[in-house]
Nucleic acid binder design. Structure first.
Lengths: 337, 337
DNA sequence: ATAGCGATTGCACACAAGTGCATTTTTTCG
DNA sequence: CGAAAAAATGCACTTGTGTGCAATCGCTAT
């Protein structure tokens, strides 16, 4: 009773001993397509079950691929990021991968550290959702046979697989929707994050407006969040000439903007003010908001990621672009026909 | 130029060869407190840098602890879960652990599969946020030296460390708030998930009301979500005797409930109807809702988890209870003094 | 100069798996 | 029944680490 050895994982050797076979037999039992007789197989499985044996995937990963995929992500509480992580972990799991999440800041140093962790754990691939890693580190990953997949990141990094939504299309379409609704004084709300995606949406929107001879008042608030949207609205409607149509580069910004516009400035949406967002987070569809926005097609994006993982040779660096899906709700007046 | 060998990870041996030292020297260079002269150390670091060497944590995990912690979670898109995952990954990382996320359904079979994966990857510990694993499997984990930490789960499982918020307190306090606001006809909205936490909040609320001689109409909607809250509101206000004070066992339910109550039934909150939620998700604080609710103290909970990991002997099964923090907002009338 | 001593270093093993190859065992077929 | 083919098995090596142990190196003190 007194010999309490510290509990530890049971190895294939122990199973072999108990079943009265060689360790190879145990290994073969748990390897698809290996040659084991039904008799020994049964003995092994029985012993394994009795001892609570589980194949050590770390040891397996020593020889071949580890089946580990790292997800580098910041701002995980953001609804859109949470959904991305959810969808990706789901799909990766379904294709036999396991996900390691590295929760990082967006600054380069944090992302670099994250990427190095990724190498430490011999991940088959790293999927970067936030921040932009330095090119040299990406090269190191590639040199080590690790795939790097960047989602909605700056596309100038060579060697990595790039994947993102068509921000330009959203910018153009946002303008079209607001103009069709009869908006004359346009505004654009963005954050101080200056992500490539955000910047592109902004640029294209402003350019498209300029092409129609319409000016856009650009307001830059704090980080990408509900509160920043509120702050932006207070600034925008505190000025003399208030807009009657606004494109917020993110749903979260849009929702904060809407709340302040309605509650603090008494505006009716869409009668006095039309709002367009981007992402189609769950809350955009809530009854209080009914925000017209662009859905990031997360499932197709995740499918694409899995596809890239399974066929690494496809990963030759040109950027795969996915069309966002316009979602018409009530925050924009319908066009008159 | 033509010998393009497939890229693969660089090992300590390669570094040793390049630096002209033994592999042990390389290993010691990257091990704290090991004995290496400054000269070889420099040579090794230089070679490692040139080759892009990174210690293989999987191989390291073969001998000692893996530093891997598995997070078993369902419904990751739910704001409260997203925050939990965020906080946990952050804190675990800060204490030198890496997080594997297993995204599962809540049914026992899925959770079991997840737990087995956990064993396959030799995780030091498994943290279960959703679903309830069978006791036998928990025993297997423990027998293999793996800690099991259940958060907000049913507390009857022995051997595991249990950790959760004080649901009873929330139930009592919710009743107190609604009664103080002068509510006479009480309602409780719950989902069909029947989690131990949800059930306890419900039971205590109903019991506390009974103790005051007040009846509670309990409405059970679909899964725990905004839509279920909407559905519940339609049912509740379609009936003859509508409540003037409602406790929703979850913020998401509460927000859906509020939207329908206001927009479809023209009720004013808190004048015609008081609402109390639970979780304090970000949206509960948004201007459109201003929901009075109970905050789950996620940071202290995560600290507790990390604490349990670092001092495994403390993990002796009694349930650690954390007080939720009441957050007073405008969805409940203040009491009259 | 040489013994003594502490700091380095390398060998060899352990960790837990998968697998090529040679060796048995079983099955099949003449 | 016996030979050939097929299937099953075990040995030994591989993967990349960390580390105990013994050997070596460099330095100091006698």
């Amino acid at each position: 009773m007194s010999d309490l050895k510290p509990p530890s994982f049971v190895s294939a050797q122990m199973v072999a001993d108990r079943a009265g076979v060689s360790r190879s037999a145990v290994s073969r039992t748990f390897t698809d397509g290996a040659s084991v007789s039904e008799a020994t197989r049964r003995k092994v499985l029985e012993a394994a079950d009795a001892l609570g044996y589980h194949v050590n995937h770390l040891a397996r990963g020593l020889r071949e691929r580890s089946n580990i995929v790292c997800l580098v992500v910041a701002d995980m509480t953001t609804p859109i990021r949470a959904r991305m992580v959810d969808v990706l972990t789901r799909k990766l799991q379904a294709s036999g991968k396991i996900t390691m999440v590295i929760n990082t800041e967006t600054d380069t140093e944090s992302v670099s550290a994250a990427l190095r962790q990724t190498l430490n754990y011999r991940a088959d691939a790293t999927v970067v959702l936030s921040g932009t890693p330095p090119a040299s580190l990406i090269e190191t990953c590639l040199a080590n046979g690790q795939q790097v997949i960047l989602i909605n990141r700056d596309e100038r990094l060579q060697g990595s697989s790039n994947l993102g939504v068509d921000n330009a299309m959203a910018g153009r379409e946002a303008l079209f929707l607001l103009r069709r609704a009869g908006c004359e004084r346009l505004g654009l709300i963005t954050s101080n994050a200056h992500t490539a995606s955000l910047v592109e949406r902004e640029k294209v929107f402003v350019a498209a407006a300029a092409a129609e001879g319409v000016q856009v008042v650009v307001t830059e608030a704090g980080p990408t969040s509900y509160e920043s949207g509120q702050e932006a609205a207070r600034r925008v409607f505190g000025r003399s000439e208030a807009p009657d149509g606004v494109f917020c580069v993110t749903d979260l910004l849009a929702l904060g903007f809407m709340d302040v516009a309605r509650q603090d400035f008494g505006l009716k949406i869409p009668d006095d003010l039309c709002v367009v967002g981007f992402d189609d987070i769950e809350q955009a569809g809530w009854a209080s908001y009914q925000l017209t926005t662009f859905r990031q097609p997360l499932n197709p994006m995740a499918d694409e990621v899995v596809d890239l993982l399974l066929q690494p040779q496809r990963a030759v660096s040109e950027r795969r672009m996915i069309e966002p899906i316009p979602v018409w709700r009530r925050s924009v007046r319908p066009g008159k026909h």
